[in-house]
Design a protein around this nucleic acid. Sequence first.
DNA 1: CACCATATTGATATTGAATTACAATAACAA
DNA 2: TTGTTATTGTAATTCAATATCAATATGGTG
Lengths: 176, 176
Amino acid sequence: MRSGISARYAPVGLMTGLALVMPFKPEPGGLLLEPEIKIFREFLKRRGLRNTREREIIVRAIFSRYDHFDVDQLYLSLKKKGGVSKPSIYRTIPLLIEAGLITEVFLEDGHMHYEHIYGREHHSHFRCRNCRKIVEFHDPRLDEIERELGARHGFTTEGHKMEIYGLCSSCAAKSE
Amino acid sequence: MRSGISARYAPVGLMTGLALVMPFKPEPGGLLLEPEIKIFREFLKRRGLRNTREREIIVRAIFSRYDHFDVDQLYLSLKKKGGVSKPSIYRTIPLLIEAGLITEVFLEDGHMHYEHIYGREHHSHFRCRNCRKIVEFHDPRLDEIERELGARHGFTTEGHKMEIYGLCSSCAAKSE
DNA sequence: CACCATATTGATATTGAATTACAATAACAA
DNA sequence: TTGTTATTGTAATTCAATATCAATATGGTG
């Protein structure tokens, strides 16, 4: 199940400022228009772009899943209902990134993977190089480091990405 | 000049544990066999691989430059003397990574960029999204975060990558 | 030193992610 | 409803990276 990612998260279990991020999916009862759809519509309007059927389908598909998805997974999941072409997916993703709804996470198997930003606390990733499991965590010291670097150099920082890699406990055990 | 990178660095100017990494190039008088060549030869022998003319040329070219290079830059710099094919460069890079001499740094313009690891203190990057300038820094808190995450989950961590992005001071000034 | 097994090379072809071209279509403002 | 034009899908294209394969070079062995 490749780690558990959800559209809405809560930080859980602290100790040293390093907080493990645990997922919890939105209640199925939530019937009001997904806020990310609303945000995207406003983004399109603001930019003078059109709110098309395809774009809505793509955004709904993305915010219906809670993993580090790639274009192919998205494309396949849409083949059933309606269907949207790959170029449309490739064209929509940068818009969603600009709108602050999703972000590039990492390159794996030669192509990019993405995840939600909206509704999520900023977090970092641990990646097991063997089983590819991902564990997400948040550490406020990273924000502090970003802030200090910006202050020191006069940079206007806009964010950071941190990734820790190695072997997860079970893979470490298997390799003696 | 796209940031200043050197094969051998020294940390300079601290304040909060966040150390700016400043480059200094090796003295031109150093006439003994570059240690990275020696290390690579030993790596090849250990792995039962052959020490070819092309591999030596590539390693020498890489350790003669001090930037975040890509395959094309390397290829062009070698066109003059002898010349090495791109496939050979693509085949040698993973070996140098395995040997612990270089590492992937970031994707830019749709392809990977690399930098030296050998002889360098582990460091992180700030990247200006406008002018693409890069500033390198080291912060021991990052190592501490990695250590803590590993300890908490029983992970065998092998390293981390941290990148801060935004606008450098001059680009921030230009955009009001 | 000569020989040999085979790793490595370069030229070429191939893969596959991502992008582009363009004619048909759909969004949306008037 | 109409007209402008952004967007779509199909098909073609780009280009980083990898694979194929015959010719060659390396390094161990006799």
